[in-house]
Design a protein around this nucleic acid. Structure first.
Length: 673
DNA sequence: AAATGCGCCTTTTTT
DNA sequence: AGGCGCATTT
């Protein structure tokens, strides 16, 4: 520590090394709980202390939550002033850019989309938009539903996109039947997106990559904005992200990546762990720092994690070294069925909170799939224990939210046909299914968006008067809402929309129970509040901006009440959502074959799929600081019927039960290796 | 044109 | 069990 300016005190030697080297490529291989986040934030702070202008630093994360937290920690470290009523026109204090890949790409594309033949107001299609589109295409191709399901097609297309395989090349990379079908759908899918002025999540990356590849002036302009680029969770980068970061760093070479190959749990969405494993081949002069001292978990928890992960063969061989005492041995509990599992876990939690005065926020329940938490929610509610469910999509799955967002998306971008078709007759306005089909047919014939046909008086002259009235109604509605959004405010716009559609009446019509009505109206209120909050926090609010924000970070949105409660609540998280977090008390539930590892991974039979499930289990275990409980149910209901279960093979691996065939098989393999 | 009814399929994980 | 597409009533 030669530099008087450094802020690295309180770090161990390896951490300090990672923080003190300020330039050139660097790889930080950081195991779970070794202070990875601390290293990244300290490093950024140190760059700033040593004279790098903050706004010349770009740090990339994979979730908005991670970006937000990093922003906060850096603010604390460099002592950025609290923004109290910044005067209009006063230059904002320069800050490092901390962004997810997707947000960064959206920002770039909002500016350069016309170069690629897209309008600046392109829609972002989420999973369900994609599925509607894919369903339509499969229907057009007349592939029977059994041959290729929309989800399958999207997964295959997504894989190609991540590897930058374009529609024309896809047929050549196809080997299975499904892939061949998907290849024929791929071209149509991309054309359909373009016709709807829409991009899916993969496109945000793919189009940015294309933009950089084909327009070096744009690439260089973006790259020259930054002198330092850092990527957290580098093991999660997919092909597009890899190439985008390469384009942003090849000139200045100040590229620092941080990650852990044992925590790579996103291969299914294109993440390629070889990016981190071969970093030193890409950057031969890279400095490599390994962090192996674990400050998070007790020795007993860590030894369990170490034992488990050693069953994976393809990995950097490293062992986490505990810096804490052994602590309590993790427990493995078997329950009669999933209801008992939920009841007992919750009653234990209640006891922890009431008798041992543990804070709810120090307890987490982790699970593999999103259907598992339901029972736990019910029990927690019964026991009056505050809880938050992170990453729950439920808010955006609500019909009323989907409808209102579809309205907004269509009003913002009239070519967005998926959104238009969702709300074209919601609430009913005289446009029957048959009429809609006719309109779509005419649009296809003319090769123009449906909305253009609907606005063409000649094209709709033969429609029933009620249908024409419906179209006129939509038109004036869109006009008024757009006016409001542009000239008044976004909250005015959504209020106008709710009034003009009489959406409250629709809710009253659909739901006859007053509680349900209230709940639905409340979630509409939440959406209105979210728009208000966006408007207050954004320097240049727009409908387009709001919709982008929602698409990219929607699932983190909740109402204010939830946010208050979240400050001290029990956490309910999927294993994926739990990455990067830590809790004194962790319950990993549903430790059964078919759940973890998931049946789809078992079915594929590929070793690397099981290895990823094992890493997922490893991530779960290493979230626990002091107390870990693994539990399973002996029977579990599936599709209504109770079914006997089998313990997760990982339970045997963890405990070292030699008589387990799974372990013997693995052990034999290792001996041979 | 809207409401009701029937059968089918679903269920990984998420930016 | 629940949601959705499709077919049949009202």
């Amino acid at each position: 520590m030669t530099n008087g300016l450094n802020v690295s005190h309180g770090l161990n030697q390896a951490q300090a090394e990672a923080v003190d080297t300020l330039s050139g490529p660097m790889l930080v291989l950081a195991g779970a709980g070794t202070g990875k986040t601390r290293v990244v934030t300290f490093r950024i702070a140190n760059l700033i202390r040593n004279g790098t202008p903050p706004d010349r630093i770009l740090a990339m994360t994979f979730t908005n939550k991670a970006a937000g937290e990093m922003q906060e920690r850096i603010g604390e470290l460099i002592g950025s002033k609290k923004k109290r009523n910044p005067k209009r026109g006063e230059a904002a204090e320069p800050k490092p850019t901390i962004s997810t890949f997707h947000s960064l790409c959206v920002r770039i594309l909002r500016q350069h989309a016309p170069t690629l033949g897209f309008p600046k107001k392109f829609s972002i299609y989420d999973r369900s938009d994609q599925e509607s589109l894919a369903r339509g295409i499969l229907r057009e191709l007349r592939l029977p539903g059994t041959a290729l399901k929309p989800g399958d097609m999207l997964a295959i297309i997504g894989g190609w996109k991540n590897q930058s395989v374009l529609p024309d090349e896809a047929a050549m990379s196809a080997s299975t039947d499904k892939e061949h079908f998907a290849a024929s759908g791929y071209r149509r899918y991309q054309d359909a997106l373009r016709a709807r002025a829409a991009m899916d999540f993969d496109d945000l990356l793919l189009h940015t990559e294309t933009l950089f590849r084909e327009h070096h002036d744009v690439r260089d302009a973006v790259a020259s904005l930054y002198d330092h680029v850092l990527v957290d969770e580098y093991q999660d980068t997919n092909g597009s992200q890899y190439r985008i970061t390469r384009d942003l760093t090849f000139k200045h070479r100040n590229f620092c990546v941080v990650g852990d190959d044992d925590q790579s749990i996103y291969a299914w969405r294109g993440a390629d762990v070889t990016h981190i494993l071969s970093f030193t081949q890409d950057w031969p002069d890279a400095k490599v720092v390994c962090l192996e001292d674990n400050y998070r978990s007790t020795g007993a928890i860590l030894s369990m994690a170490n034992t488990l992960i050693q069953y994976n063969t393809e990995r950097h061989d490293k062992v986490l070294i505990p810096s804490r005492p052994d602590g309590m041995r993790p427990r493995i509990l078997q329950h009669k069925d999933e209801t008992v599992e939920a009841k007992l876990v919750v009653s234990e939690i209640t006891e922890l909170i009431n008798k041992k005065h543990i804070q709810p926020r120090d307890i987490a329940i982790l699970f593999r799939t999103n259907e598992q938490p339901r029972l736990f929610e019910t029990e927690l509610r019964k026991a009056n224990v505050p809880y938050v469910m992170m990453g729950s999509q439920s808010f955006f799955d609500r019909r009323e939210i989907r409808d209102l967002l579809a309205f907004l998306k269509w009003i913002d971008q009239p070519d967005d046909e998926i959104s238009l078709l969702r709300i074209i007759n919601t609430p009913a306005r005289g446009l029957s299914n048959k009429t809609v089909q006719l309109l779509v047919k005419r649009a296809v014939e003319r090769g123009v968006p449906v909305w253009q046909v609907m606005q063409n008086n000649a094209a709709i002259a033969d429609l029933s008067p009620s249908a024409r009235r419906g179209i006129a109604e939509l038109e004036s509605l869109a006009h008024d809402v757009r006016e409001r959004a542009e000239h008044d405010s976004l909250t005015d716009a959504i209020r106008t929309m709710l009034e003009r559609t009489a959406y409250a009446d629709e809710i009253a019509r659909l739901y006859d129970q007053p509680e349900e009505r209230d709940a639905r109206m409340a979630s509409i209120g939440d959406l209105t509040n979210a728009i208000g909050a966006y408007q207050d926090n954004s320097s240049d609010p727009s409908l387009t901006g709001f919709l982008s924000d929602i698409a990219l970070s929607g699932r983190e949105m909740g109402n204010e009440k939830d946010k208050m409660a979240a400050k001290n609540s029990v956490w309910l998280l999927t294993l994926h959502a739990a990455k990067g977090l830590e809790f004194p008390y962790v319950y990993m539930v549903g430790m059964e074959e078919g759940i973890l590892p998931h049946s789809r991974s078992l079915k594929s039979g590929r070793d690397e799929d099981i290895a990823e499930e094992r890493r997922l289990c490893y991530v779960g275990i290493t979230r626990a600081q002091e107390n870990l409980t693994l539990s399973m149910a002996l029977t579990r209901r599936k599709w209504g019927k109770p079914r006997p279960t089998t313990p997760s093979p990982f339970l045997y691996e963890i405990t070292g039960k030699a008589d387990n065939p799974a372990r013997n098989r693995k052990a034999r393999k290792r001996r041979l290796a």
